[in-house]
């Protein structure tokens, strides 16, 4: 039986082959990923329907329960495929978005709005005043950067310059942490590629890459010779 690491290494290298150029192996890996993703998602979705709808309604026969109403509202989503009834699909969407919004807004009041305004960060710390001033300055000047109704000149121009520095620091931090995350993904893959048996596949791929990259040069040099 083929070790799992061999399959993993092959698939990783097929995906990474895009770094050289777009090729059928990359396209195959991309299609397999999408297919697998859809398959897994569909499997879990059907399982969820089975557990939450089929078993209580059909197997246990609990037709007089809130699940029936939920099931009917869910079914209404599919009326968009029937021309005369498509407007009914708006109802479940409206219910979904209104419930989502109300749940989020009521939850946001405490921790996301009131708590953030109540006490300054690092309250009681000697540096809290500086931190507070920095926070307010960064907020105001960064907002000034996005004022487009006035030319960035004079006082506004100076504020925009300060705001730009704060934005650069924020984006730099975001980029740094984002890079750290993405490096982790590459390293995880490398832990398969650098150690046998995955390393054998890496060696084969390296040889193929060297051959492929050197081929056009040979052809070119022959063509140049012909011209001469």
């Amino acid at each position: 039986m083929i070790p799992v690491e061999i399959i993993e290494a092959t698939l990783i290298l097929m995906t990474w082959s895009l770094l050289y150029k777009d090729n059928p192996l990359y396209k195959l890996a991309a299609s397999m990923t999408i297919g697998l993703y859809l398959g897994v998602t569909l499997n879990y979705a059907i399982d969820s329907l089975n557990k939450n709808i089929y078993v209580p309604l059909i197997v246990q026969g609990k037709w007089l329960s809130p699940t029936t109403i939920v099931f009917i509202i869910g079914l209404l989503l599919y009326t968009r495929f029937i021309k005369s009834l498509w407007w009914l699909s708006r109802w479940p969407l409206a219910i979904l978005s209104s419930i989502g919004l109300s749940v989020a807004v009521t939850g946001a009041l405490g921790p996301q709005i009131i708590a953030q305004l109540s006490t300054p960060p690092l309250a009681g710390h000697p540096l809290s005043i500086i931190n507070g001033i920095l926070g307010v300055t960064a907020t105001v000047t960064s907002m000034c950067y996005f004022v487009y109704s006035r030319e960035h000149k004079g006082v506004l121009g100076a504020l925009v310059k300060i705001g730009r520095i704060f934005l650069m620091i924020a984006f730099g931090f975001m980029l740094g942490t984002f890079l750290m995350s993405n490096i982790a993904f590459a390293i995880q893959n490398m832990s398969i590629l650098a150690v046998p048996p995955g390393a054998y596949i890496s060696a084969i791929a390296a040889i193929i890459l060297i051959i492929v990259t050197s081929l056009p040069r040979v052809k070119k040099s022959k063509g140049e010779e012909m011209k001469k």
Partner: peptide, 16 residues
Amino acid sequence: LAANIGWIMPYVEKRI
């Protein structure tokens, strides 16, 4: 995710 650390900082500061 390390990339989301900046996102949680306001909640860490407020000890949520």
